[in-house]
């Protein structure tokens, strides 16, 4: 390589030389992009439960009362747009946070936050030890492809599948390392 080339030019030139004449690749997309799931709520609830998160299916009329019961006495961060007053503002001393989500995935038991209205900032959903997430039944999609399609890549996204966990010590699963140790999911139907 000629000296004086920038790193960028030199790397790109080496790449071009390395793959000159390499064939065009067709990408076979024979995998499932739409899955048929009869009971989305049931499957999602089962799969979230597999991660040792707490799951409840709640009729929408009882949602408020159920949140009250979950929260009892905890100092909860309530993000803008969640639609409830009386949140705790200090992140360091908060006991928990309540959020909505952007989309939920039945097959993997995942909730995805895009940190839009009602979902808090990334820090708000991370620092408190308890995360209460309200999922509306129509936000649940069958699989990962359907979720990727619904999400906006220009937003910061946090995909959450169960509470924080580690298996670093002799492969023993321990829940609760740095993220919230308790994840509770309310599915509002």
């Amino acid at each position: 390589m000629a000296s004086g080339m920038s790193a960028r030019e030199e790397i790109l030139a080496k790449v071009r030389a390395a793959v000159a004449g390499a064939p065009t690749v067709e990408i076979p997309r024979g995998y499932r992009t739409r899955r048929q799931v009869d009971d989305l709520v049931g499957l999602f609830a089962e799969r979230v439960g597999d991660y040792r998160a707490i799951v409840r299916v709640v009729p929408s009329a009882e949602l408020g009362a159920t949140i009250d019961a979950c929260v009892h006495g905890r100092r909860m961060v309530v993000p803008d747009g969640f639609g409830r007053d009386g949140g705790w503002d200090d992140l360091d001393t908060a006991d928990g946070v309540m959020t909505h989500c952007a989309v939920a995935i039945a097959e993997t038991g995942t909730i995805v936050l895009d940190h839009g209205p009602g979902q808090g900032t990334r820090a708000q959903t991370l620092v408190p030890d308890y995360h209460l997430c309200v999922v509306l039944a129509d936000q649940i999609v069958p699989g990962v492809p359907e979720a990727v399609e619904r999400l906006d890549p220009s937003r910061p996204l946090t995909w959450i599948s169960g509470p924080s966990a580690t298996s670093d010590i002799e492969l023993n699963r321990v829940e609760g390392v740095h993220g919230p140790r308790t994840l509770e999911v309310l599915i509002s139907t």
Partner: peptide, 24 residues
């Protein structure tokens, strides 16, 4: 949509790993 299925299942043997962060 492909790699978020391939990686967690191959790696930790979970349907999905606890946290995935994406930022632009």
């Amino acid at each position: 949509e492909v790699f978020l299925q391939l990686l967690p299942r191959s790696s930790t043997g979970e349907r999905m790993n606890p946290y995935t962060s994406m930022w632009t």
